[in-house]
Design a protein around this nucleic acid. Structure first.
Lengths: 170, 170
DNA sequence: GGGCTTAAAGCAATGGATTTGCGTTAGTGA
DNA sequence: TCACTAACGCAAATCCATTGCTTTAAGCCC
């Protein structure tokens, strides 16, 4: 089912209808309505699946550059047209904690970077601080403003969090 | 038209359909489709209108408490069920810069608070810093997590911005 | 006031999506 | 194997969305 959605989205988002997805997946539309309730819920489900990371964050050798590398990649993905569509799908469907699942993928990646840093003897920042101080303005910019956060923006936000007491390289 | 939407939303969001709105507003559905394209665009339009502030921020006598007062009110509005629905409507409809208009209302209120502070001889923080440092995590929490930002959260974010060089009370 | 132009709205037909009742199928456990 | 349950398919009914054409209303000029 997810594959049917992805294939249809790749060719024409206007053609992404329940009957089209059903035909593509070899089922009848009532199956989709019975299972997901409406198109928005199915699209949100698919979007959350696509947000799920399939690789661990790149290891650059140091905590700060791990963060910057991962966050810039995250910025690039989320600010792309497909990324924006995924965010819109996730935020459109009411209920089901789709946004929460999306955010927890992000948190897990940041935790993995932090654990790797601890293993190196570095002192990583709390993940909550990074979510509030970096991910939040990054996503807020993407959602609510015309401009995409620059690399300087991301670097500034990261360094502002790392400079606070309780965080930073050893 | 906006009033018809508001009335229908107040009673039953499931009944908010183009034909129902049209009947309520005394027009035919094709009028709505011709003007707005689809239901999502109309709902976003209505949501943006409802986001527009109708009063200036309260004057508490000092910049920091002006900020805190306004931001806590903003937090309360945006985290309410109606507020969350408005955010969802705004973020669901593609194109038209609805989120940008929503964000600019917020920025204008923060600018008004800053101008009042300047008039008092205080040194307000840059509005961009408040958007990135306070509004972004506030909205991100509301959109992506199960918990609503607490008053402590808001206070902490505000003070983190005010403590940076270039901002603060005189 | 009358005529003309243009944009918006209304009407009605058509097409497509959604809902729902009922029957069928598939999977699971005893 | 049988009974139960959940999921799926089918088809009819309902509702929403689209579109061509006509009508209406507003604005401008003489």
């Amino acid at each position: 089912m997810h594959q049917a959605v992805n294939e249809l989205q790749a060719s024409d988002r206007d053609g992404v209808t329940v009957p089209a997805i059903a035909a593509r997946a070899g089922v009848t539309p009532s199956t989709i309505y019975r299972r997901w309730g409406d198109l928005a819920q199915l699209l949100a489900d698919v979007a959350v699946s696509r947000m799920q990371p399939d690789t661990p964050p790149a290891d650059t050798g140091a905590y700060r550059s791990d963060l910057l590398t991962w966050l810039e990649q995250y910025r690039d993905e989320m600010s792309s047209d497909p990324g924006r569509s995924l965010l819109r799908d996730i935020l459109s469907a009411q209920g089901r904690d789709n946004p929460g699942r999306c955010a927890s993928f992000c948190a897990q990646q940041l935790e993995a970077i932090a654990e790797r840093a601890s293993g190196r003897g570095e002192h990583p920042a709390p993940t909550d601080a990074l979510l509030d101080g970096v991910v939040a303005p990054l996503i807020y910019r993407i959602l609510f403003s015309a401009d995409t956060p620059s690399t300087d923006d991301v670097t500034r936000w990261v360094d502002a969090v790392l400079e606070r007491p309780g965080a930073g390289v050893a």
